[in-house]
Design a protein around this nucleic acid. Structure first.
Lengths: 219, 219, 219, 219
DNA sequence: AATGAATGAGGATTCATTCAT
DNA sequence: AATGAATGAATCCTCATTCAT
């Protein structure tokens, strides 16, 4: 996995760079979430980071750099959270519902970040944009792999060409919990949302003969 | 449907107002699509509209007004296009695939507009935001009604509580053709996308006893 | 003479553009003379011009544009002043001293401007730089033409290859009255300077047989 | 010659100060030549010097100090080079052409430095400015002395009042090879320039009776 | 109704200099 | 002596909006 050129900085101590950028990203995430990328000034980011206006620019070359770092951090968080979830189980037909449930939980916990990445990615310069989209794709592939595994172990009966699209669907249905919150929250609890979406997805995947009665409610 | 307070204008002739706003919206839509809301200046909108900078403000009170008008126009277009589609058929089990196919076609034709509304809605002041989201919801309800009809006529076997969420899912899966274009276009044609999504949705909806053999695999 | 692309402006009335730019150039000239190009802020230029900060940028696209306009104006002034001088006389041997005297007077009157152009030309972006240097060259050529005429009418006896360099010399010796003012002013009045330089130049130019006794003091 | 207050430094070892300032001046000269005084940052100077940002300020109190040191070094170089030239000969009428030729060679070798001093002197604070101009004057005087000697030994026949001005002329005509390079280089080689200027100056200086036939035309 | 010149608050970014280590 | 991270005042420029004509 090629490390794409990191953001330039005159500061020499890499640990310090890591630390300061963490401060910056934390501040920026908060502000971007509240007021949007364009509604936030670099001065505010600096102040909220606890840095001077100039200091900010020792660790970052432009406001766009900050947005990129924020997007990157969000994807990292999503991935890390997902990793914690995916574990136990034997057959995919049993594991996937658990994983989906975990995924929806992550989307719920990080809803503000998910929303943020959805709304502001387009403000990235194209070079950064492709990197961010690549990571998005990568997460999609994680689901695609699960589906393939499920096909392999006989859990699912779907055509292989469908897998990639279903993986995207899963991503989008999860993110939708964040970006359609304004509507969904009045009608569904996270639990209801999770159970329903999981059940619907399993219906798409599982061959009728494998669907034990009561599956949608039972797990 | 109460028309909430329309945008104020000193111009008397309502027909002229309609005409000028049409010009403005057409120009703004083009520009917002190309460069984003924040990347577009009011001067550009005026020039592209063929109006003077000052004239623009005779028909609109702020840049945000323009964004609202654009969003409104987009929803109107989506609705009108959808109306043209929904027509023929007898049982829902037969009609829905046709409607979905039409819906995906609309999303494809209007992909730039769909993208636009997705990316810029958040820049609306909250008063406008709620109106725009309300129209979004309205379109969702259109699908919800179809689903209810399908349950009523025995086409579909899903719990009524699930209907609203499925309607949202349909919306989002359609819009996704626009806002995940960067990835999907390399793997799926519109036709493939349409067939796959439709087939998956039908699997969720249709009672096993209605599923004629080969339906999911056949096409 | 190709009109090179003029500075863009959104303002439509060309007369107004001329007027405002005149204000801007007047203010900028004063300020650049006093504090240098880098020492002057665009805000100061705007205020001194009697314009708002934003208005300034309706007539000019950058600070560099202003510097260019200033340089251009200075060259125009020098040229116009020179034109007024060059008139009467019959043989070059009689005319040149008058013209030189006029030229030195112009350099004296415009000394601040001459100094300014000498010190700040280098801050121009290269595209502008070449234009400014071209005008400088043009003035040089004016002197070259005089010299050629003098050779033709038998006033001067110098090789033709020397002419271009002597023209440059004349320019530089005139400008030197402005840019070596810090030293010269203590030792020479303008009159003394003029007489001496003229006399020296005539010695270079005039064949010994044409040099009437007392020429250096007499004219 | 009283050394006016030297630039303060907390560093004790004078040899080290000399060494470090040499590094600084070398770096700054290069950078100022390439990008101008205002276009160069102190950080760049430090880096190019091989020093830390802070270290720079141990040897210098401001960016202006650096410019002063650079100007001073340039004048020193010019003087040293001139000294190497002035040597041999008997009568001034023979020596001056040689010296002039050497002077023009120096101006050619150091053209970037000459240009630099011409363009950036004005950025010096006035206290430094006077010192720099004083050295410039000093070099002028060197030529004045030569002229006086030439008058004394009967080589030249010019009024004593003229001498100081002619000395300035020589300086400026030499520097012009650097600061009018953009035009002169296309028309004259250094040799042609030297011969022509020398010949013209000799015509100003030499009494007609000393002018051996063919002197101006011969070479 | 139409126009477009005028405006100033605001925004991203730079950089000479300092100071704790 | 050497260092380099920290700083904030200052700079150029933009742009939504107004208003006199």
């Amino acid at each position: 996995m090629k490390r794409t050129d990191p953001i330039a900085t005159p500061v020499k101590d890499p640990e310090l760079v890591r630390l300061r950028r963490e401060q910056i990203v934390a501040a920026a995430t908060k502000l971007f979430s509240e007021k949007g990328y364009h509604g936030t000034t670099t001065r505010e980011i600096a102040r909220t980071s606890g840095l001077g206006t100039g200091t900010l620019y020792e660790y970052v070359n432009s406001k766009e750099d900050i947005l990129y770092l924020v997007c990157d951090m969000i994807h990292t968080q999503v991935e890390e959270r997902l990793k914690l979830v995916s574990c136990e189980g034997d057959r995919m037909i049993d594991r996937l519902p658990v994983i989906l449930s975990g995924f929806f939980k992550v989307m719920d916990d990080l809803q503000e970040l998910v929303l943020l990445i959805y709304q502001e990615t387009k403000s990235l310069p194209s070079e950064y944009m492709v990197r961010v989209l690549a990571r998005e794709e990568q997460i999609s592939e994680y689901f695609a792999n699960l589906l393939h595994a499920g096909i392999a172990d006989g859990s699912f009966s779907v055509e292989p060409e469908v897998v990639s699209l279903m993986a995207h669907n899963i991503m989008v249905l999860g993110q939708m919990w964040a970006f359609r919150r304004w509507s969904l929250q009045y009608k569904y609890s996270l639990q209801a949302f999770t159970e329903t979406q999981t059940s619907l997805l399993m219906r798409e995947l599982v061959a009728p003969e494998n669907l034990r009665k009561g599956d949608e409610n039972g797990n």
